[in-house]
Nucleic acid binder design. Structure first.
Lengths: 200, 200
DNA sequence: CATGCAATTTTGACACTGTCAAGATAGATA
DNA sequence: TATCTATCTTGACAGTGTCAAAATTGCATG
C-alpha cells in the first residue's frame, strides 16, 4: 500500500524525483528544470524534495553521479570484451561520443560548468568522477603497452590529452555550435588518427 | 555635459552596460550577473537596459561577439608576424589557451551552452563566430601546405578536430574539473605533439 | 523662441524561481 | 495507547527577467 498516490507519504520520493528530473532535463534541458515544477509533476508539494536533497545542486549532483557510474561500466565492459586493443579503443571513442550526444544533458552535468564551477560538486560526485577517470588512466596504460596510444608521455598525461580531445569534440556538438552532425563520423575518424600512435 | 551623472539621460548607456557587465562576469561569473543589479551599478533603473538590449540574451551575445573579434585579431596577427609556420602554430596554441583561461567567462559565452544551446545566438554573433572560424580554416590550409598540420584530410576537417582538441583542453580547465593547473604546460606540449604531423 | 516628436528612462506589475521556518500528519516504536 | 521521528504541507521572503504605461529629456522643425 506504499505506492498509492492518495497517501500522505510518497513511498520512494527520492527515486521518483531522480527519475522525473532525469526525464525533464533529457527532454527540455536543465534550464527548464525547476524544483517546484519537479515537485508538482511528482505530485508533491513545493518543498517536499528538500527533505531528500539538500538543494537543487545536490539533486543535480546525484544525476551526474549516476552518469559516471554508467560511463565507468561502459568503459570496463569494452575493455574486457574487445578482441584487439586497437579495436577496443576505437569502439570506445565511438561509444564515448555516442553516449555524450545521446545523454547530452547528463553529460553536461557530469563535465560541465553547472556543477563543477557555478555549483558545488558533492563529495560523492567527486569520488565517482575520480574513480571513472582512474579506470580510464588504467586502460590508457595498457593501450600504451600495446602500442595503440603513443608512448611519448606518461599514462596520466596521455589520458588527459586524449580525454580532452574527445571531450572537446563532444562539447562542440552538445553545445550546438556550428558543426553539422553529418560531419561527426568523419571527425571521429580523424580524431582517432590524431590520437593513435600509428598514424594511418 | 553629456557625461554628467546627475543627468536624466546617461550619455552612452550601451557602452557602460557592456563594460560593467564584462567586469561583473569576469569577477563573479555569469551566474551572478543580473539585469537588475547591472542596471543598479550603472546607476540606472531596472528596465532601462532593455532599451539598449532586447533582453539579457542579447547583452550576452554582444559580449561574446567582442570576444570573437578579439580572437580573430589575435589569430591574424600571429599568422602574419611569426617567423616559421611551426613556431606560429605552437604560439597560437599557447595563446589560445591563455586567452581561454584568462577570459574564461567570455570564452564560455563564445563557445558555451549559455548562448548556443540554452540561449539564442544573435545573427551578428553567428556571423562573427563564423568569420573567426573561417580565418582559422584558412590558416590551417596554409599550415598543411607547410607540413605543420597533417595532410590526411581536408583543411575543414583538420581545422575542426584540432580546434575541438584545444577547446576540450580549455573547457576542462575552465569548468573546474579535477585537473591541476600545474599540469597545463605539459598537457599543452603533449597536445601539440598529437596535433602536428611530425611527431617529435 | 516655442512646439512637437522621438529617444530615453522611470515606476508599477506579473509570474516565476530557490529555499527557509513552522506547523501538520503518518508510520514506527515503546 | 502514547510518543517519537521521518515525512510532507502551507506560508513567507528575496530575488529574477521583462512587459506596459507613464514620465522626462533632447533635438529638430515651425
Amino acid at each position: 500500500m506504499s505506492t498509492l498516490k492518495t497517501q500522505y507519504h510518497h513511498g520512494d520520493l527520492t527515486k521518483s524525483l531522480l527519475e522525473s528530473a532525469s526525464l525533464i532535463i533529457k527532454e527540455q534541458g536543465v534550464e527548464s528544470l525547476s524544483m517546484r515544477k519537479l515537485a508538482d509533476t511528482v505530485g508533491v508539494s513545493r518543498t517536499a524534495p528538500y527533505h531528500h536533497f539538500k538543494d537543487k545542486n545536490a539533486l543535480l549532483c546525484a544525476l551526474a553521479e549516476q552518469g559516471f557510474h554508467e560511463q565507468e561500466h561502459m568503459l570496463r565492459a569494452l575493455r574486457a570484451q574487445s578482441n584487439t586493443a586497437t579495436e577496443g579503443f576505437k569502439k570506445y571513442v565511438h561509444i564515448y561520443l555516442e553516449y555524450a550526444l545521446q545523454h547530452n544533458e547528463v553529460y553536461d552535468l557530469m563535465y560541465g560548468r553547472t556543477l563543477w564551477k557555478a555549483g558545488n560538486p558533492s563529495d560523492s560526485l567527486k569520488a565517482a568522477s575520480k574513480q571513472t577517470f582512474k579506470a580510464w588512466i588504467d586502460w590508457v596504460e595498457e593501450l600504451q603497452e600495446q602500442n595503440v596510444l603513443p608512448n611519448n608521455n606518461t599514462p596520466l598525461r596521455i589520458g588527459q590529452t586524449t580525454w580532452a580531445s574527445l571531450h572537446g569534440l563532444a562539447r562542440l556538438f552538445i553545445d550546438g555550435i556550428y558543426l553539422s552532425t553529418e560531419d561527426l563520423p568523419d571527425m571521429i575518424e580523424q580524431m582517432i588518427k590524431n590520437l593513435c600512435s600509428t598514424s594511418a
